[in-house]
Amino acid sequence: MADVRATRLKSRQLRAISTRAEITATNFTNTYEWGDLSGDPRRMVARYFDAHPYVTNWGTHRLMLRLPRQALNLSMPQAYCLGRHVEVWTARTHLRLHTEYANPRFDAQWSRSVVALTDATYSVP
């Protein structure tokens, strides 16, 4: 019963961020034609979700992952960095990885880097 109450509370908190979003126990999906998400994606990943993909029609691509802290050596993402486009920070139990790229001419390079990093992250024993 506590899980049900927690899920309802989280749903209400997420609904306060967006009245138009599709919200389930595992998903928050919203498409914006004008404007942007009013919530803080870093906080949402920290509190509610394990991943935050974000793509805009003007070329910004963002992927945030929340992983168990032991899933990734903090020095590992450096091999996949594109300048300053990869950030890693830790919380008590989780590690958060944030990648962002805003130059549409390098979409393929950014995408390959994110895929390689994701593959390497999930192949770590």
Rank of each mutant, 00 (worst) to 15 (best):
H52L: 03
P53W: 00
L117M: 05
Y32W: 04
S11G: 04
L14H: 02
W89I: 06
A16L: 05
F28Q: 01
S113Q: 14
F49T: 02
L95E: 05
F49G: 01
A25M: 08
T93H: 14
G39H: 00
L67V: 04
P104D: 02
M64F: 03
I17S: 04
A46Q: 12
R105L: 14
A116E: 07
M76S: 11
R105Y: 12
T7V: 07
L72C: 06
F106W: 09
A71Q: 12
T121M: 04
I23Q: 00
Y32N: 04
L95Y: 07
R62W: 01
V124P: 08
E22A: 07
A21F: 00
M1R: 13
N57D: 15
L65R: 05
R66W: 01
P104K: 02
T121D: 08
T99R: 12
P68N: 06
T99Q: 13
T93M: 11
F49M: 05
A6D: 08
Q70W: 11
G35H: 00
W110M: 06
E33W: 10
S38K: 12
D40Y: 02
T121N: 07
S123M: 09
W34P: 07
T26K: 09
V88I: 10
R112A: 15
A21H: 00
T60A: 10
H98G: 02
P41L: 01
I17E: 05
F106T: 12
G39C: 03
L37V: 01
L67D: 04
L63I: 03
Y101P: 07
M64R: 00
P53I: 02
D50N: 12
F49A: 05
A6K: 06
V114R: 03
D40E: 05
A71Y: 06
A21I: 00
R43I: 04
R66Q: 02
D119A: 15
Y101N: 10
A108M: 11
A116G: 08
S11H: 01
T99H: 12
M1G: 07
A21N: 02
D50T: 10
L9I: 01
S111D: 14
V4H: 12
R84L: 11
M1E: 14
A71F: 06
A46W: 03
E87S: 10
F49Y: 08
A21S: 02
L67H: 04
Q109E: 15
A91I: 05
H94Y: 13
T19M: 13
R15V: 00
R84M: 13
G59S: 03
E22G: 06
R42V: 03
D107I: 10
P125F: 14
A116I: 07
A21M: 00
H61Q: 14
L95R: 09
D3C: 09
T99I: 12
W89H: 09
L63M: 06
T56E: 05
W58T: 10
W58H: 09
E33R: 14
T118K: 08
H61L: 13
N73A: 15
A16F: 02
F28T: 00
T26S: 11
R62M: 05
P53E: 04
